[in-house]
Structures are given as C-alpha cells and as structure tokens.
Simulated scan of single mutants.
Amino acid sequence: MKKAIRAFVLCLAIYIIYHDVTTGTLIVSTKATAAPEHTTDGKINVHIPYQTVTVQPGDTLLSIMEELQNGPIPVPIDKAIADFEALNPGKKAQTLQIGKKYKIPIYKR
C-alpha cells in the first residue's frame, strides 16, 4: 500500500511540474494596448492621465507612482514603464535625474 501511495504522489508531482513549466500558474494579461496616435506634425498624441513631478533624491519611478496612488499601482510594472516612456519621449524610466520634472501616469483603481 505504501508503494502505491508513493507512486501516486510521484506521478502527481511530475504532473504538477509539467503543468507549471508548459502552461504556467501565473495569470497573464492578454489585453492589447492601443498604440499612441501620431499628429500631422509628427508628435505623438498620448491620452494617459498624468501628474508632473520633480524627482527628489532617493526617488524611483515605482516609489513616485505608489506615492501618487497612495498604495500599490493597479497595473503591471511593464505597462507603467511603457506609459511613462510614452508621456516622456526620449526618457527612460531607469534614468530618472534628480531635480528634473517628469510626467508620471496616474491610474484609476
């Protein structure tokens, strides 16, 4: 009887590992986001609500966004970074500079 239970547990463990590797257990958002519109003069027209913030020493994009939201942000980090870079053309989220002003996206809960 013990051998049968061990064999069952082993098979179950193998199945769980196989399912996790092939399908995964994390929920992935499959919503498509609209590309920014280009105006006739070549500028990008972005429709994301934002607030202009001056970066202080020790600030990161995530810390600023969480402070503006009064808690965790309600969107995935990669979407937040993409929105930040769309609002601030030519700027990267990883290279915020102290004393500079940036447009930080605001999300509804």
Results as ranks from 00 to 15, higher is better:
77 I>V: 13
60 T>W: 01
73 I>L: 10
89 P>I: 03
73 I>T: 13
57 P>I: 03
92 K>Q: 14
47 H>P: 00
51 Q>S: 13
78 D>G: 00
68 L>Q: 15
47 H>W: 01
75 V>Q: 14
62 L>W: 14
53 V>G: 04
94 Q>R: 11
53 V>R: 00
88 N>S: 08
75 V>R: 12
95 T>K: 14
81 I>T: 12
65 M>A: 15
89 P>V: 07
66 E>T: 09
65 M>Y: 05
82 A>Q: 06
87 L>G: 08
58 G>E: 03
70 N>Y: 13
62 L>F: 11
58 G>P: 10
80 A>V: 08
59 D>G: 05
85 E>N: 04
84 F>K: 02
71 G>T: 09
89 P>H: 02
67 E>T: 15
54 T>S: 11
74 P>K: 03
47 H>E: 14
85 E>D: 09
65 M>G: 13
50 Y>P: 04
83 D>M: 01
91 K>V: 13
77 I>C: 00
66 E>V: 03
59 D>R: 01
79 K>E: 13
95 T>L: 15
72 P>C: 00
78 D>H: 08
81 I>M: 05
82 A>W: 02
53 V>H: 10
55 V>S: 00
84 F>P: 07
95 T>F: 12
70 N>V: 11
57 P>N: 04
66 E>L: 01
49 P>T: 09
64 I>Y: 01
96 L>Y: 09
96 L>H: 07
86 A>R: 11
82 A>D: 08
64 I>G: 07
75 V>K: 12
90 G>N: 06
62 L>R: 14
73 I>S: 07
51 Q>H: 12
53 V>K: 00
87 L>V: 06
83 D>L: 05
97 Q>L: 12
57 P>V: 06
75 V>Y: 11
75 V>G: 08
48 I>N: 01
61 L>M: 04
83 D>Q: 00
90 G>Q: 05
93 A>Q: 07
94 Q>F: 02
63 S>R: 11
95 T>Q: 15
50 Y>A: 08
46 V>R: 10
82 A>Y: 05
74 P>T: 12
96 L>K: 06
92 K>H: 14
88 N>D: 11
86 A>Y: 02
45 N>G: 00
77 I>K: 14
51 Q>C: 08
57 P>S: 10
60 T>K: 01
46 V>W: 07
94 Q>M: 05
66 E>R: 10
73 I>M: 07
63 S>H: 01
